[in-house]
Design a protein around this nucleic acid. Structure first.
Lengths: 112, 112
DNA sequence: GATAGCACTTTCCGCGAGGATAGTAATATA
DNA sequence: TATATTACTATCCTCGCGGAAAGTGCTATC
């Protein structure tokens, strides 16, 4: 894995994985939606401190990455529902690994 | 894992893990050092396009995170060696997982 | 005597992410 | 009649990342 020749293409896949998760909000939004389908305003209330503009952008990003789906009903005050896809659920394993390493990492860095 | 109550602390560990790896250069530097101990100029030649300033910053970041060690010899033209720590090597598994999910992710996103 | 190499640091600069705020159409409620 | 709600979009502004380029102290080489 960590070999010279593996560099370019492997790194691209790794970067794609990181990019799908990085930033201040994506994980929080995914966790919020992992409970169940939610509407825009519900998410914005749950994910503390996020602005509408940023939430809207992040949701689009997650949708393009097929981690969530958007469902629009043309009701009179607009109704839009967001839910996690199967692919989105497959993140759970990766998040577990990140969590595991992250914990080890914190211990390692804390101890002088 | 992806439960409501797990949110705050789990997310911190996950974010630490992501933060240790995110950005344009960290993974490339780690891959370069995973081969063997190297000097500043060697890394800068191998990691294509990085500037001295950024490389210097990234190396500091990696050192603080105990993923690499810096060894300074006070020779007349300065000699400094960087090498991977045991903790740094423990990244390999995580990178494998990121790679695996990243590949699945690319397939998923590519197919319409 | 000029130049190159090393491991940085410093300064300047541009761009983009993201925060704050306000606006939109349409309806229900007070 | 005024206001709240919904899911956004638009505008403005600030901050920080990261690139380009040059400087530093000292030596070895041409």
């Amino acid at each position: 894995m960590m070999t010279r020749d593996g560099c370019p293409e492997n790194v691209l896949a790794i970067k794609d994985a990181i990019e799908a998760l990085e930033g201040k909000w994506k994980i929080l939004i995914m966790l919020s939606l992992s409970q169940n389908t939610k509407r825009f305003r519900e998410i914005s209330r749950e994910v503390n401190g996020i602005t509408d503009k940023v939430l809207s952008k992040e949701l689009k990003h997650l949708e393009i990455n097929k981690l969530i789906v958007r469902n629009e009903f043309n009701t009179f005050p607009p109704t839009v529902e967001y839910s996690i896809t199967e692919h989105g659920k497959s993140l759970e394993l990766l998040l577990m690994e990140l969590y595991r390493w992250g914990m080890k990492h914190r211990e390692e860095v804390m101890k002088d």
